[in-house]
Computed example of a mutant assay.
Amino acid sequence: MIIIEELVTEEEVRHIFPLMKDLRPYLDETRFIQIWKTMQPDGYRIFAMYDAGELVAFTGIQIRTNMYYFRHVFVHELVTRADIRSKGYGKELLSFVHDWGREHECVTVALESALIRDDAHRFYETKMGYDRFCYSFKKELG
């Protein structure tokens, strides 16, 4: 049985760190928790998906408003456990995000995906109907 629930305590959030590490290998657990605590006041939320009580995927999302997406859900992370990808968990979790966004009066769901993540791009475009329409740029300020 699949259950999706919001994680709100530090203990709950620590439980998803191994999946976060798959997506963001440069993070250690301490830094991950520090960043999570910093993002919370701005509305960052984590939803975990469990199948038969076992963690299979999670997403980190936030409602934002800007001039080009208007009120939208921004997906910071969407991760399915590597050993069970392509079994429909990501599709179900992202569909949950779409419904959640509608319930919270959002008109768009937006996300970014690293250039090297071809499998993720195929998933977003072919299975979920997303449009690839722009590039994101960054400059390190170190």
Rank of each mutant, 00 (worst) to 15 (best):
F32Y: 15
E5T: 13
R64L: 10
E29K: 11
E92T: 12
M39P: 04
R81S: 13
R85G: 02
M39T: 09
T9R: 08
K87L: 09
A114Y: 12
T38F: 09
T80C: 10
K21V: 02
I35P: 04
A120C: 08
L23F: 11
Q40G: 07
A120P: 02
D28H: 11
Y44L: 02
H121C: 01
R122K: 14
V73H: 06
A52K: 11
R102E: 05
T30M: 10
Q34Y: 04
E12C: 03
K37N: 15
E125R: 09
M67R: 13
S95A: 13
G90D: 04
E105I: 01
S95W: 05
I33E: 10
L27T: 12
H104S: 12
D22T: 15
Q34F: 05
D131I: 03
Y68K: 08
D42K: 13
V107Y: 04
K87H: 12
F47A: 03
C106D: 06
E103C: 00
L78T: 06
I61P: 05
E92A: 06
V97K: 07
M1E: 14
R24K: 15
E6P: 09
R31Q: 11
K127A: 01
V97F: 03
T9M: 06
M67D: 12
L19E: 07
I35H: 02
I63R: 06
G101C: 07
D131C: 00
Y26V: 10
E105K: 03
I46H: 00
H76K: 10
M67L: 15
H104D: 13
F17Y: 15
V56W: 00
I3C: 06
M128A: 06
A110I: 00
I46T: 14
E103H: 01
I16L: 09
R122N: 08
L111D: 12
V56G: 02
R64I: 13
V109I: 15
T80K: 07
I116M: 01
F32T: 07
G101S: 03
H72Y: 09
P25L: 13
E105Y: 02
A120G: 14
